[in-house]
Simulated assay, not measured.
Amino acid sequence: MAALAIGLAVAGCDALPPTPSRATIAGGREIAMPHARTFRVVARDGYRIVDLKASVVGWGGAALGEEQFQRLVLVPHGVPAPALTGDLAGATLIHTPVQRIASNAVFHEAITKVLGINDRLVAVGGVKSWDDAVRARVRSGALRQIGYGWHSPPQLDALVAAQPDVLLMTMGDLRSVGAKPRIESLGIAVVPIFLDNEPDYLGRIDYVRLIGMLAGHEAQADAFAAMVTRNVAALKAAAAAQPTRNVLSAWFAGGDRWNPTVRNADAKLLRDANGRNLFAKPDDPTRDSFQSVTTEQLIARGRDADCWILRDTHSARFTDLSVLRRFRAYRDGCLFAADGMTKPDADAFDLYETAVIRPDLILGDLVRMLHPRLRDQPFRYIRPDTTVPR
């Protein structure tokens, strides 16, 4: 099977589909996606046109290569498919609702779960699913393993064997970008997922609505988006009534390097919790949400933080008390860790699955962290750090 897939991929390189046109869509009615900036949807003649565009951003760095663009044409079964000419030249035709879905990121699985279509998954990244049922299907061989998008491009032999209608594809590097036309040449429609590029965390919720369109579960997706949006509005209002507090979110990378959150969706969560991010920078979807700084820089700008998210699942252990004592958050005991909802035996972290599309849950933790008067519920993903030496 591997040899067959590679052979097909190489053969397909001689007749790759044309580059999708970025021409303005002629006519139609735009379907509102209030928060998304990486895609738009236009309804026309009984089908939908979806334009997705974003940069592939290196981890902790800047955009890699050229901005990526994809035009999809979503045509319901029974509706005549339009000719892929004119403003549809080079677009990818997808008949909806799709029934067989491949995914290369765990948060895609969170989306399919809230839409009630996990039974349509035929391939996933691997065995790190938070969902026990999905993980059991992977381990039994019922679901193919194609590899996670933050590590490598999908494994072609496993992907072809799964026979998906579509691949929901998160692209972590340029190797994945290069693999995309090969996958398409095998007859698999690729739906790029640029969720991480959304500067507003609510833009992630619009991706639930997009996949709801693909699956024919728009009502469920719309209801989910409305629920999350209501929760966010209530949390923002409660936080805004409290005094603004200084906040630092920076994890230790080892050596003399720290990674503070500075921009985009993660920084907006801190702002909406009525926190003053001491490392804030302007939003920029062509750069990652964090940057690397030295310990000296961290002390100079972060010493007056009232609360500090000191650890996450990537962090190296930091035990230098002479440094920690220079921070108000340490002295006042307001140190937190973004390491809740873990299944160590499965190496599964719900922070990277459900929490991606439930920013209201993350925002709730941040509001309770910064504003003790609002601690009316337990912490979920971001919780007091009990591992720091005193």
Rank of each mutant, 00 (worst) to 15 (best):
A329Y: 10
T294V: 01
A273L: 01
T261F: 13
A329W: 11
R326K: 15
F336A: 00
S289P: 12
G275K: 11
A346M: 10
M341D: 14
Q297E: 05
D304P: 12
T319D: 03
A305Y: 02
R276Y: 14
T295P: 07
A305R: 04
E353D: 11
L324S: 03
V356K: 12
C334P: 12
T295R: 08
D256H: 13
L269W: 02
D256E: 10
W258R: 14
A300V: 08
Y352E: 13
A316G: 13
N264K: 11
T286C: 07
R331D: 10
N277L: 02
S292W: 01
F336V: 00
A346G: 10
N264Q: 13
A305N: 04
D312G: 03
R311N: 01
L278M: 04
R331S: 11
P282V: 05
R276S: 14
G275V: 11
F318D: 00
A346F: 12
T294D: 07
L324G: 05
A316P: 08
R263M: 09
P285S: 02
S292R: 08
P260N: 00
P285K: 06
T286P: 12
N264L: 14
W308P: 15
D304S: 04
R331L: 06
G254N: 05
C334D: 13
N277C: 04
K343Q: 08
G275T: 12
D339M: 04
E296R: 04
L270H: 00
A337W: 08
G340V: 02
F327W: 06
V262E: 11
K343R: 04
F290H: 06
S292G: 00
L269T: 10
R331W: 11
G333H: 01
R276G: 14
R311Y: 00
Y330M: 11
T313D: 08
Y352Q: 09
R276I: 13
F290M: 00
K343M: 01
K343G: 06
A355K: 10
F327Y: 09
A280N: 06
V293F: 06
F290S: 05
F349Y: 11
T354L: 15
L335K: 02
W308Y: 10
S322D: 13
D347T: 12
D332N: 07
G340M: 06
Q297M: 04
R328W: 15
T261L: 03
S322C: 09
F336E: 05
K281N: 13
K343A: 04
F318V: 04
T294P: 06
